Simulated assay, not measured.
Amino acid sequence: MLRFSDAVLSKQERLSRWGFLGLTTAPLVGAALFNHTGTPPFLLCPFWATTGIPCPGCGLTRSFMAIARGNLADALRMHLFGPILFLAFTVAAVLMALELKAGRRLQHTPFRYINERIQNWWWLGGIYLGYYGLRLYSLFHTGEFYINPLEILIIKIL
């Protein structure tokens, strides 16, 4: 059950909630819109375009789009962390909207509970980078990663 505190949100707190609401809903709305209009060309990864190496976030947009279509298997295939982030963005957007509607802060949220239980977050970054390393290894051994990144950097520099 959701319980709100007695204190009213200050102007600064309301502005920050609106900002978080915008940041969390933009990818969700974008995923739904891109499914109907196609992926726009401006969503090319600048890291991949520059180096020829996929970045750690490559595939998240396609994963979000697959989730918006209701295809969880494709979402997991595109990026393992896509469904997790999609769920986190959805929950955060709903909680921010509830706080703005009520004008009061929620006393307990899943994010505060998780933050209290997990003291050191460094391991989560390690898991994410480990997953990225496995993706690069897999791409290299399947032949999908056929570009020599050093060659691309030398060509771009010269």
Rank of each mutant, 00 (worst) to 15 (best):
69 R>Y: 05
90 T>M: 11
96 M>E: 04
107 Q>L: 15
107 Q>G: 14
83 P>E: 01
98 L>W: 00
99 E>L: 00
79 H>G: 06
90 T>G: 10
90 T>A: 09
76 L>W: 02
94 V>P: 06
68 A>Y: 08
124 L>K: 11
74 D>T: 12
74 D>N: 12
125 G>V: 03
96 M>G: 03
136 L>M: 07
72 L>D: 09
128 Y>H: 04
89 F>S: 00
109 T>Y: 09
107 Q>F: 12
93 A>P: 06
89 F>C: 08
120 N>Q: 14
118 I>V: 14
83 P>K: 02
99 E>G: 06
127 I>W: 05
111 F>V: 04
104 R>A: 05
108 H>K: 15
126 G>W: 01
68 A>M: 09
129 L>F: 10
105 R>Y: 07
96 M>F: 11
87 L>F: 10
136 L>N: 04
137 Y>D: 10
63 S>P: 04
130 G>P: 02
67 I>H: 06
135 R>T: 00
66 A>C: 02
86 F>S: 00
109 T>H: 05
75 A>S: 13
124 L>W: 13
127 I>Q: 08
74 D>F: 09
139 L>D: 09
70 G>L: 11
117 R>E: 11
89 F>A: 07
105 R>M: 12
113 Y>G: 13
107 Q>C: 15
120 N>M: 10
134 L>W: 08
101 K>F: 15
96 M>R: 01
139 L>P: 00
69 R>G: 13
94 V>K: 04
128 Y>L: 05
88 A>V: 11
